[in-house]
Design a protein around this nucleic acid. Structure first.
Lengths: 123, 123
DNA sequence: GACAAACGCTTGCAAATTGCAACCAACTTG
DNA sequence: CAAGTTGGTTGCAATTTGCAAGCGTTTGTC
């Protein structure tokens, strides 16, 4: 593995992980308590299933998300944020704040389920 | 113009503006005082000139960046953040902080030139 | 326990975006 | 006035995306 890194800049490296149109939306969904494939699929932005599969596996590989079984004997895997993944809450927050302040017609509908301290109460 | 918006979510809409691998790097460069095409080109990530042209024009269109003439009689246009563009400093900051805290081997090299209050002093 | 629906994907393909290199016109420098 | 330098544009191949269809495995229903 050649370990391709564009530069040592923390901004660039962070963008290499989460700097696309979908990844932070999955983080958002998980922050709001969504855990299953169909729930992510059901978000209003309408992510395609192949993209969803790809992003979930990348997030798991980056240890921002982990798979787990909701029921102990259930064959269906679910996904949730790891502690490292939850450390992205401030990023999510600042993106939401900026959008609300600067983009007309945006509105926060979803509320974070846990770790409420990290996310604003005005959501 | 069909005004394509994926959803009214402020996170999604913000990502539609700045959620790619290059845009925030240009914001970073401008926050550090870079103003000319060649300076953006010279950043270590090595942006291609066609992508650079495209991102600059999108940023200008979104009124996050404005063109201006550095010397009054110079034919060369330069680029700088608008006030709206500078309102992205907290986004830049939180991305940099997260990268520094969570990605091994990243280091902040560039310092913001103005509006230092918005960006950390540890850079 | 047969059947249909739902779930979590995978596959195929066309369209859009990216990365790369070459080229170019306008200006500046020696 | 010739040789860079700057700020792009153009062409093209490779990668990524979006969309729809398919598919094997549960999960509900009767």
């Amino acid at each position: 593995m050649p370990e391709r890194r564009r530069s040592p800049c923390p901004v660039a490296c962070t963008l290499d992980l989460i700097g696309d149109r979908w990844t932070m939306l999955l983080i958002r969904d998980m922050a709001c308590g969504k855990r299953q494939f169909k729930e992510f699929r059901g978000s209003p932005e309408g992510i395609a299933t192949n993209i969803l599969t790809d992003r979930l596996s990348r997030l798991v590989e980056a240890k921002l998300v982990e798979k787990f079984a909701m029921a102990e004997d259930s064959p269906r895997e679910s996904y949730r944020l790891t502690e490292k993944g939850e450390s992205l809450f401030p990023v999510l927050q600042v993106l939401a704040d900026w959008g609300l302040a600067n983009i007309l017609g945006t509105e926060a509908r979803m509320k974070p389920k846990s770790r409420a301290s990290s996310l604003s109460s005005r959501a």
